[in-house]
Amino acid sequence: MLAYAPAVLLFLAFCAGTLRERRRFSNAVLLGLSFIFAAAAWLTELARSQPAMGREIGIVLFLLLAVGIAILSWFLISNGVTMVRKEGRSPANLLSLLAGLALVALLALMTTALILENETLVVVTGTVLALAGYIAFLFLCFIVYAFLYGRLHIHRKADYVVVLGAGLINGATVSPLLAGRLERARAVHTRLTAHGRQPVLLASGGQGPDEALPESHAMADYLVERGFPAALIEREDRSSTTEENLRFSKSIMEKANPDYRCVVVTNNYHVFRAAVTARRAGVRGQVVGSPTAAYFWPSAMIREFVAIFLTYWRTNLAICLLLVLGGASIWLLG
């Protein structure tokens, strides 16, 4: 049982970190590491007590990994084609397609290395697999913890409901995606009001170069047209990014009430990154999400992960360089 001690300690660190501040990406990594160490301990114990079964399970896991990569490649490429057909060829819409093609290239590289048995190619393949494994580990941590975060309890007391803006159709009309955020914000506002609060709904979004008016103004108009009290709406109309949405909204809330609490509303795929950004901006509040079309979700989640990965670019660059240097050292020593 001592073999499971690292996994238990990591899981306890995850629990403590989540209770202290649930908006940290380190919580996701700690949870992922606890599962990795638990699985490693289980396989080690199995190999020690039943060597034959341990080898068989290892082979099965390897085959499942290969088949899983192939299936995932097909799914991502298929979803990428759907995204391009329904949403256009913007770089963000190509992410699932590019990820699927990258996995196909990885499988091709692995197959070539196994067939040719070239030492240099094997080392290169191993290094690429190490890099891909590191990124895949972080991505799985992100997906799992983002799912968990979206289901954590949100405090019932809040002075503001902040809705993050999104692009307008034809520069003036609220899109279905943004309408989903606004409807979720209304539901949150209704729930808070039922518990004795009367929070202000803060629409956050500036005016893009292709928009006829600020997103926040279109959002406010949408709400008022559907019966929401105009007196309970404020606008933040200078922002152009999620970080600015939160930073400028924070200024408005702090000016009116230094001890404010808020709930931030966005789409479900964007919840955890918005929460991480809110923590870094010093915003006092958690984030909730509205539903998103299923076909849109894979590319959106990849985009969110890329943004999180780049947020911690120094740490990730250092680890990737260490993996590359490790591969180079093996090649030189070989």
Results as ranks from 00 to 15, higher is better:
Leu131Ile: 11
Thr193Glu: 12
Arg247Gly: 06
Glu56Trp: 12
Thr127Arg: 08
Ile319Glu: 09
Ile169His: 02
Asn316Pro: 03
Ala220Val: 13
Arg280Ser: 11
Met83Cys: 13
Leu202Trp: 10
Ala99Phe: 09
Ser90His: 11
Ala113Asp: 02
Asn170Ala: 15
Val188Phe: 10
Leu322Glu: 02
Ala166Met: 02
Thr127Met: 09
Met53Gly: 00
Asp210Lys: 13
Gly289Asn: 03
Ala130Gly: 15
Ala40Gly: 12
Gly326Leu: 05
Gly289Phe: 05
Ala230Val: 10
Arg226Asp: 02
Gln207His: 05
Gly68Ile: 02
Ala52Arg: 01
Ala92Ile: 12
Lys157Ala: 14
Met1Tyr: 13
Val163Arg: 15
Ser96Trp: 06
Leu332Ile: 11
Met301Tyr: 08
Ala41Phe: 05
Val224Cys: 00
Asn170Lys: 15
Trp74Thr: 09
Pro258Lys: 00
Glu234Ser: 15
His195Thr: 11
Met110His: 06
Leu103Val: 05
Ser240Trp: 06
Arg48Trp: 08
Val224Arg: 13
Gly32Thr: 04
Gly133Tyr: 03
Asp259Thr: 06
Glu243Gly: 15
Glu236His: 14
Val122Tyr: 05
His153Met: 14
Val104Pro: 08
Thr111Val: 04
Tyr312Thr: 04
Ala3Asn: 10
Gly327Trp: 13
Arg48Asp: 09
Tyr134Gln: 01
Gln207Leu: 00
Gly206Glu: 01
Met110Glu: 10
Leu129Met: 15
Arg20Ser: 02
Ala172Asp: 14
Asn27Glu: 01
Gly32Ile: 08
Leu310Arg: 08
Tyr160Gly: 07
Ala70Trp: 07
Tyr312Met: 03
Leu223Ile: 00
Ser175His: 07
Ala218Val: 09
Ala92Gln: 11
Thr292Asn: 06
Ser240Gly: 12
Val161Pro: 07
Ala220Asn: 11
Leu2Val: 12
Trp42Ile: 05
Met1Pro: 14
Leu106Ala: 13
Ala300Val: 04
Ala66Asp: 09
Leu131Asn: 09
Leu9Met: 12
Thr120Met: 13
Ser299Gly: 13
Asn257Cys: 03
Leu325Gln: 11
Asn79Glu: 14
Leu31Gly: 03
Arg23Glu: 03
Tyr260Lys: 09
Gly206Trp: 01
Phe305Ile: 08
Gly206Leu: 05
Ala39Trp: 12
Thr311Lys: 07
Leu152Gly: 10
Ala256Glu: 14
Gly180Ser: 15
Phe137Ser: 11
Ala132Trp: 02
Leu317Arg: 10
Ala256Gly: 13
Leu61Asp: 04
Leu152Lys: 04
Leu114Cys: 05
Val306Met: 05
Cys141Met: 03
Thr292Gln: 01
Ala92Trp: 04
Met110Thr: 06
Leu168Glu: 00
Cys320Ile: 10
Val283Gln: 09
Ser329Asn: 12
Ala293Leu: 14
Val123Gly: 06
Cys15Ile: 13
Phe25Cys: 00
Met301Ile: 07
Val188Ala: 14
Tyr145Lys: 14
Gly167Tyr: 04
Arg284Gln: 12
Met110Cys: 14
Ala41Trp: 00
Val276Ser: 01
Val29Glu: 00
Leu182Ser: 14
Thr18Lys: 01
Ala13Leu: 03
Ser299Lys: 10
Leu321Phe: 03
Leu131Pro: 08
His155Met: 01
Arg24Cys: 00
Gly80Asp: 10
Ala136Val: 07
Ile36Asn: 05
Leu10Val: 02
Val306Ser: 07
Glu225Ser: 15
Asn245Pro: 13
Gln50Trp: 03
Leu65Gln: 13
Ala275Asn: 09
Arg89Gly: 07
His155Glu: 15
